[in-house]
Design a binder for these strands. Structure first.
Length: 474
RNA sequence: GGCGGCGUAGCCAAGAGGUAAGGCAGCGGUCUGCAAAACCGUUAUACCCCGGUUCGAUUCCGGGCGCCGCCUCCA
C-alpha cells in the first residue's frame, strides 16, 4: 500500500514516492548542543525512530542523518560562562544526548555530522553562493541575499512584503535587505574562529544543515524534518541556500512535528520551561514515555502530563500480562483432546497497524490496533489457559510473533528491567516452586512471606490457574 | 496585524458525509486461601456555538467564541 505524508511545502497529504526506488533518505534537524535534551527534542527522535522501523518493515533501505549544530552564539556564551572551550561543551552535550537516545531505545542514526567538522565544505558552498551573486560580503560577514531567490517564503507561506513588516528587530544597516541572513559571521575578540577567504569567523546558523544534508544524502533528498518552530526561518533559509547553490529541488517532503508544551506553554530552552529527558527517565520507563509521545499524532501539540505517562505505564503492564499468558499457554501442557477451538484472525490487527502508519504515520491509530490485538489475545486465552488445546498452539504462536513485531516497530520492547540478563531467573523460579509446595500444604503464612519478600526486592508474583508467573515490578 | 493549527465521553486521544477507535479512571461482577492481575458488564444517546449545502454533518462551506504555535534564538 502507498504511504502518505503530510508535506509542509504543499500543506497536504501526498503519496510518498522516494527519489530512488526502495531507498529513503532522511535528514532530521538535530539540536544546537548547549544543554540537555528535553521531552520536546526527544519527541521528534522517537517519531523518526518509529518511522525508520516502519520503513524497514516495509522493505525500504533507510539512510537517516541527524546533525549536531555544535557552534553558535549561545554555545560560545555558555562555554565562556563555564570557563570551558565551546568544543568541549558541545561534545559533552552531544554524548549526553546520544546517551538519552539510547536509553529511550532510539536506533542510532547512520550519520551524526557536526557543523565544526564541515567548515571546509561550508566555505566552499558560501564561496559558490557569492560567485552566483546570491551572497555578498560585508566586513568579514557574508550574507545570503533573499532578493536573489524569488521563491523565498514558499515553505512558511510568507510573502516578502509580510516579512518586511515583520522585520522589526534591530535592523543591521549593513545588510542590503533586512531579511538577509548570515552565512558566515566574523569572529569578535576572544571568540573561536576558523580561517576563511573573508577573514576569521564561523558559519552562520542554517548553512551547516544545507551542506551536511547535501553531502550525506545528495539532492533532492526525500524527507527533511524538524520541529514546527524550525519552519521559519531555519528551513526556509536552508531551501534558499541549497536551491540557489544546486539549482535543484532541495528536499521533496518536509515533515514537521508539533511542540511539547509544559503547563500550557511551549517547552523551550530560552524560557527555562523545560523537562529534560534524563529527569523524565528517573520517573518513567522509556517504553511508557515513548508510547505517551506517540499517542498523539505528531502534528498535534502535546501538553506534557506525567499522570498520562503513568497511565501508559499501566496500559503496558496489561499488555505484558497478555503476553505472559501466551507464554504460559505455549510452555504448558497441551490438552491433546480433539477439541477444536477457532481463534479470531489476529492478522487484521497487523493490517490495521500498518495502514495507520501508512497514513501520515498515524501512531495513535497504530497503538490502538496494538492494544486491540493484545486485548483480544488476552481475552480468548482466558478460556483455556490451564491446558490449551493443540488446535490453538500454532495460531497462538503466530499471535505472539505478531505482538513482538508491533512492539518492535513502536520500539517498546523491554530492554532494561526485564527478566533477562539479571541471572536471577533460576532463583526466583526455585522460590516459586518451594512456595507452590507450601501452598499445597496450605502453609499460607510462609507462602505469603515469600511473595511479599520478593515484592520488596521488586519481583511481583501472580498466581494463575496455570501456575505462578513473575515479573519485575517498579 | 500576518501565517498555520486546534476545540470529540470524567481525563488523554483517533476518526469517516450515514449517528464515533484506543488508553486511563470510576462503579458492579467472575476468578482466587488471600493478594495481585486478568476477564465481563457499566459510566457512553461524547463531537464549542450559530447559519448554509445535503435525503442526511460531528465530519464540507461561511461566521462567531475560546485555546495554541510561528512571525526573534528555539525540536
Amino acid at each position: 500500500m502507498p504511504i502518505y505524508i503530510h508535506n509542509t511545502l504543499t500543506n497536504r497529504k501526498e503519496e510518498f514516492v522516494p527519489q530512488v526506488e526502495g531507498k529513503v533518505r532522511i535528514y532530521s534537524c538535530g539540536l544546537t548542543v548547549q544543554g540537555y535534551a528535553h521531552i520536546g527534542h526527544i519527541r521528534g527522535a522517537v517519531l523518526f525512530d518509529v518511522i525508520r522501523r516502519f520503513f524497514r518493515k516495509k522493505g525500504y533501505e533507510v539512510i537517516y542523518v541527524q546533525n549536531f549544530t555544535d557552534i553558535d552564539d549561545k554555545i560560545i556564551a555558555k562555554a565562556k560562562h563555564e570557563g570551558v572551550s565551546p568544543a568541549s561543551l558541545a561534545e559533552y552535550y552531544i554524548s549526553a544526548y546520544l546517551q538519552d537516545e539510547e536509553e529511550m531505545g532510539i536506533m542510532q542514526a547512520d550519520y551524526n555530522p557536526r557543523a565544526t567538522h564541515h567548515i571546509k565544505e561550508i566555505i566552499e558552498v558560501v564561496e559558490a553562493l557569492i560567485r552566483k551573486g546570491c551572497a555578498y560580503v560585508v566586513d568579514g560577514d557574508v550574507y545570503f541575499s533573499v532578493a536573489s531567490f524569488p521563491s523565498y517564503g514558499k515553505l512558511s507561506k510568507r510573502s516578502l512584503d509580510e516579512m518586511m513588516i515583520g522585520a522589526r528587530v534591530e535592523v543591521d544597516e549593513r545588510k542590503r535587505d533586512p531579511r538577509d541572513f548570515a552565512l558566515w559571521k566574523s569572529a569578535k575578540e576572544g571568540e573561536p574562529y576558523w580561517e576563511s577567504p573573508w577573514g576569521k569567523g564561523r558559519p552562520g546558523w542554517h548553512i551547516e544543515c544545507s551542506v551536511m544534508s547535501i553531502k550525506y544524502l545528495g539532492v533532492p533528498l526525500d524527507i527533511h524534518a524538524g520541529g514546527q518552530d524550525l519552519i521559519f526561518p531555519h528551513h526556509e533559509n536552508e531551501i534558499a541556500q541549497s536551491e540557489a547553490f544546486t539549482g535543484q529541488t532541495f528536499a521533496r517532503y518536509w515533515l514537521h512535528w508539533a511542540p511539547v508544551n509544559l503547563k500550557g506553554e511551549k517547552m523551550a530552552k530560552s524560557t527555562g520551561n523545560v523537562f529534560i529527558v534524563r529527569e523524565a527517565l528517573k520517573q518513567f520507563s522509556p517504553q511508557a514515555l515513548r508510547l505517551y509521545l506517540l499517542s498523539s499524532h505528531y502534528r498535534s501539540p502535546i501538553d506534557f502530563d506525567g499522570e498520562k505517562v503513568e497511565e501508559m505505564e499501566r496500559a503496558l503492564e496489561r499488555a505484558r500480562e497478555a503476553e505472559e499468558k501466551v507464554d504460559i499457554a505455549l510452555k504448558g501442557t497441551a490438552d491433546y483432546s480433539e477439541r477444536i477451538v477457532e481463534l479470531p484472525d489476529f492478522g487484521v490487527y497487523r493490517e490495521q497497524f500498518y495502514s495507520a502508519l501508512e497514513d501520515d504515520f498515524n501512531t495513535p491509530r497504530a497503538i490502538a490496533s496494538y492494544f486491540s490485538l493484545v486485548s483480544e489475545v488476552g481475552r480468548v486465552i482466558d478460556d483455556f489457559l490451564p491446558k490449551p488445546p493443540t488446535s490453538v498452539l500454532l495460531p497462538l504462536w503466530s499471535a505472539k510473533k505478531l505482538i513482538q513485531e508491533l512492539k518492535w516497530v513502536l520500539g517498546i520492547e523491554e530492554r532494561r528491567g526485564g527478566k533477562e540478563g539479571r541471572g536471577i531467573e533460576g532463583f526466583v523460579e526455585l522460590l516459586i516452586k518451594v512456595r507452590d509446595k507450601l501452598r499445597k500444604q496450605k502453609l499460607y503464612e510462609l507462602a505469603d512471606e515469600i511473595r511479599s519478600g520478593l515484592g520488596t526486592l521488586g519481583i511481583v508474583l501472580e498466581d494463575h490457574p496455570g501456575g505462578t508467573i513473575w515479573r519485575m515490578g517498579k
